[in-house]
């Protein structure tokens, strides 16, 4: 098992390397540089800036320098947030994104799973249709619509919850962003759970469990749900990676200092190091969560073994 995990992690290194290489050169193709303003800089000033950030060196040299520092887990100075290094920015924002994303993930799993099981047990009845209609709505209405509506309703009109700000992750501040972030996921999880649950409830071994007079809870939770959760788990892997690395929309609307905004800000500001750092972090999360999903699979399904 440990060997398998190590093998997978080692195997991820070439992937990350490739991603770093591609994004390093791609971002530099974009017109404009990190220090271009609407007001053009004096040539000399630009030259000085380029010198400070090694941008005057040949591209391959910059690439090697970058690889070297990434290998030492140093993502370099931010070109835009000039008072910070990328590591400082991430150290500050990543925990926030993870807290937000994990909360949303748990909410999605619990709420979506419950709704899905509930709907599956009442398949083709009005409760089922209600849940599925809500789920469809959850998937189709984008969060840049949901967020303003929720903040207007609960924040501005009713005044129950703050409209924005992180405030050190206080519970009241976290509710709306978590809910907004989780809503589409709740919908997907509900749909997935319902589908696989219906299938599981129809399966022969659940019929066996019924035929042997097991209680409803045992039939539904012990025998049907454990198998039905597998597709949800494989969906949640990439979804978790996406949730935990932040959401531009949510962070911008709620004014949350997470990591999600950095990718867009970095790209728009041509903050090369910030973009690259975000790419590496996201890639690592995706790789990590795929691994976690595979390990979870082995935990849930004895037929899956890594040894």
């Amino acid at each position: 098992m440990l060997r398998y995990v190590l093998g997978r992690l080692l195997g991820a290194i070439p992937t990350v390397f490739l991603i770093v290489t591609i994004s390093f050169f791609l971002i530099r193709i974009a017109p404009g540089g990190p220090f271009d303003l609407e007001r053009p800089l004096e040539a000399k000033v630009m030259e000085n800036l380029n010198k400070i950030y090694h941008l005057n060196e040949p591209l391959w040299n910059q690439y090697l320098l970058y690889l070297k520092s990434v290998a030492q887990l140093d993502f370099g100075p931010s070109f835009y947030f000039r008072d910070f290094t990328i590591n400082e920015l991430f150290a500050q924002s990543l925990p926030i994104s993870i807290q937000l994303g994990l909360s949303a993930l748990c909410l999605a799993l619990v709420a979506g799973g419950t709704m899905g099981v509930f709907a599956a047990l009442r398949q083709n009845k009005s409760a089922d249709y209600a849940v599925m209609a809500a789920a469809t709505l959850g998937v189709t209405v984008p969060n840049f619509v949901v967020a303003p509506i929720l903040t207007l309703l609960l924040g501005v009109w009713l005044g129950w919850l703050p409209v924005g700000g992180w405030n050190g992750g206080k519970f009241v501040n976290i509710i709306l962003p978590v809910v907004t972030l989780a809503l589409p996921q709740i919908a997907v999880v509900a749909r997935l759970t319902r589908g696989s649950m219906i299938e599981a409830l129809r399966s022969n071994h659940v019929r066996t469990a019924r035929a042997y007079g097991l209680t409803g809870f045992m039939v539904v939770v012990v025998h049907a749900l454990r198998g039905a959760i597998l597709p949800v788990v494989s969906y949640l892997g990439p979804a978790a990676a996406a949730l935990l690395t932040g959401s531009v929309v949510i962070e911008t609307i709620f004014g949350i200092p997470g990591i999600g905004r950095y990718f867009v800000q970095g790209a728009l500001n041509r903050d090369y190091t910030l973009v690259m750092g975000t790419v590496v972090v996201v890639a690592c999360f995706v790789i990590l969560f795929n691994l976690i999903v595979d390990l979870l699979y082995a935990l849930l399904d004895p037929r899956v073994r890594y040894d």
Binding site: A147, P148, T151, L152, G155, V156, G159, P162, V163, G164, G165, T252, I253, F254, G255
Partner: peptide, 18 residues
């Protein structure tokens, strides 16, 4: 000083007294 890149969100925060 709150960065308010999303002007719509800023308006709502203003309305809410934040």
């Amino acid at each position: 000083f709150h960065p308010t890149e999303d002007r719509g969100a800023a308006l709502r925060r203003f309305q809410a007294g934040e």
